[in-house]
Amino acid sequence: MKLKKNIATSETGFIFNPATGDSFTANALATEILQLLKQDRSPADIKTLLLNRYDVEPNQLEKDWDDLVAQLRDHQLLD
């Protein structure tokens, strides 16, 4: 899973897709995940990191991860 190369993300949670002209806001966790994806970390890697860092059950994270991926795909932010 790869974020499109030219997607601009900011630390304050803005995402801009220069190919479509769409802008988005992200909450803190989505912002963090996007930053990690941009660093080419693997999904498995990122999930392990999040499980260590946040108070969340693996099942819940798995479900929310899939939902985020669906959102990213919906908004044409993935390669």
């Binding site: 806001t25 992200a26 909450n27 995940i33 819940q60 985020l68």
Partner: peptide, 11 residues
């Protein structure tokens, strides 16, 4: 651990 809130992006 930190408080969790599921990731969300909004157009």
């Amino acid at each position: 651990k930190q408080r969790y809130e599921r990731p969300l992006i909004k157009k």
